[in-house]
Amino acid sequence: MSGKVIQNERTALAQNVINQPDGPGKRIGKRSELALIGQVNPDGGAELFRSRIAQFQAEAAYWETRVGTVHDFRITLIDNDTRLLFMITYDGDFKPYVQDIIEQAHPWFDAIFPGIWVGYKSAHDAATIQMVVDSALTADFLYVAHPDLSVHDISKMKKLSKAVNDLFDAAS
């Protein structure tokens, strides 16, 4: 980060924001961010996207649970349906995240993006992977409420909280 920061009571909780060590994106603690912009196929890509998005949305929890590191993932059409904007927050480094997508969620991505995202062939295709890397953007600003909590940590805390509540309910 560049620029001068005036130290005061409002900067006391400043987070240590770094660039990803192995690819595009920023990171705070365990959390990383990534944004991508892709070209939409001008020959019906936007309509095809809209026809597939309900199934893609319905399967999101299944596939993202398999990946196991995604906090949130958003896709939207922008610029009069000519481009796709992807925004992802995940745990860890860039390269292992991409490898997890290739290994764990490739059928999901391969069911939506062919014919929509110009240049997308398959999550296993080397040219597609390079296109993803080349279209990646690094955020200028990133804030994370709980940077040291991974998806796994949050899942454990939810289970523990339920168990404690069940115990208290049983005791009352």
Rank of each mutant, 00 (worst) to 15 (best):
M1R: 15
K4V: 03
Q7R: 07
Q7V: 15
Q7T: 13
E9S: 12
A12I: 14
A14Y: 13
I18G: 04
D22W: 05
G25S: 02
R27F: 07
I28Y: 01
A35E: 07
A35S: 14
A35M: 14
V40T: 01
N41W: 01
N41L: 03
P42V: 11
E47C: 02
E47V: 11
F49L: 06
E59W: 09
A61H: 09
T65W: 08
R66E: 00
V67A: 04
V70R: 00
V70F: 00
H71Y: 02
D72T: 15
D72S: 11
F73H: 07
R74W: 08
I75M: 06
T76V: 08
D79S: 08
D79M: 14
T82I: 05
T82M: 04
R83L: 12
R83T: 05
L84I: 03
L85S: 06
F86W: 15
M87D: 02
M87Q: 10
I88H: 01
D93K: 03
F94S: 13
Y97A: 06
V98W: 11
Q99A: 11
D100K: 12
I101Q: 03
H106R: 12
H106T: 14
W108A: 02
F109S: 05
A111N: 06
A111E: 10
I112E: 02
I112A: 06
F113Q: 00
G115T: 03
G115D: 01
V118E: 12
K121G: 02
K121D: 01
S122T: 12
A127L: 10
A127F: 00
V132L: 10
D134Q: 09
D140V: 15
F141K: 10
L142A: 03
H146M: 15
P147W: 09
S150G: 08
V151R: 04
D153Y: 07
M157F: 09
K158G: 04
K158H: 08
N165R: 12
N165M: 09
D166G: 05
L167E: 05
D169T: 07
A170L: 10
